[in-house]
Design a protein around this nucleic acid. Structure first.
Length: 227
DNA sequence: ATGACGATTTACT
DNA sequence: GTAAATCGTCATA
């Protein structure tokens, strides 16, 4: 036992992100999430996980690109109004799920979309799950094609609709581990406009997408947007 | 009851 | 580069 009561383990042991970690604005959370690890514990208790390398901030009612634009509150986006640390998972284009971490005070629909992961645990398992979900052969799924997009990472981690509204701070099979104590330095990250929101008027050009520079696991569209 | 529309991915020219 | 796939959700009637 150490002085602060934490158990000492052989290697660096990752801690789960707390309520306080999520209790901030979405731009801050989008940056803080870079370098943390999204973890899914499967039914057989094995873990699949990846380091978050790309995020997008959604700013709520005033944000034309947000599902909560204009204060819209429906059965679909109800989770966005939950307390910080709530998961918001939505289904889109008739075939894909996307995962968000909700932040800000309860009742205020701020969220961060997790767009890409660098696979680190259970990679072969993720490859199989993603292959099955997209109707391909596992051999055709390369490491950089595994979690390099919001729909892809949900396939790889087996994240579906039933996770929407769950509490990332306490849920046994979906959470985020604090693998990085501090926010990445500015030189280590880039920001660009968000992807796939041509309908968002003046919000289209806002640079609310954040990603690790030079990381091969960020979503495709990066390569042409900005190196 | 109906119709338009995606915070995407994939295959193909 | 462009386009198809595919369906839950929500606004309108």
């Amino acid at each position: 036992m150490t002085g602060n009561g934490q158990a000492r383990s052989p290697g660096p042991r990752a801690d789960r992100c707390t309520r306080r970690f999520f209790d901030t604005d979405s731009v801050s959370l989008a940056k803080r999430l870079l370098g943390q690890t999204l973890v899914r514990v499967l039914d057989d208790r094995s873990r699949v996980a990846g380091i978050i390398v790309e995020t997008e901030a959604y700013l709520g009612a005033p944000d034309r690109a947000s599902h909560a634009f204009g204060g819209r509150r429906t059965a679909r986006n109800e989770a966005m109004y939950g307390p910080p640390g709530t998961a918001y998972v939505y289904f889109t284009y008739g075939m894909h799920y996307c995962f968000n971490a909700v932040c800000g005070p309860e009742g205020v629909p701020l969220a961060v979309l997790v767009r890409a992961l660098e696979p680190v645990e259970g990679i072969e398992r993720m490859r199989r799950m993603r292959a099955e979900a997209s109707g391909r052969e596992p051999g055709s799924v390369t490491d950089s094609d595994l979690c390099s997009g919001p729909g892809k990472l949900c396939q790889a981690l087996g994240i579906g609709r039933h996770f929407t509204g769950i509490d990332l701070v306490s849920h046994p099979s979906l959470f985020i581990e604090r693998t990085r104590a501090r926010v990445l330095h500015e030189e280590q990250m880039s920001n660009t406009p968000r992807i796939g929101i041509p309908f968002a008027g003046g919000w289209v050009s806002r640079r609310l997408r954040w990603f690790m520079k030079e990381n091969p696991h960020v979503s495709r569209s990066v390569s042409r947007a900005k190196r």
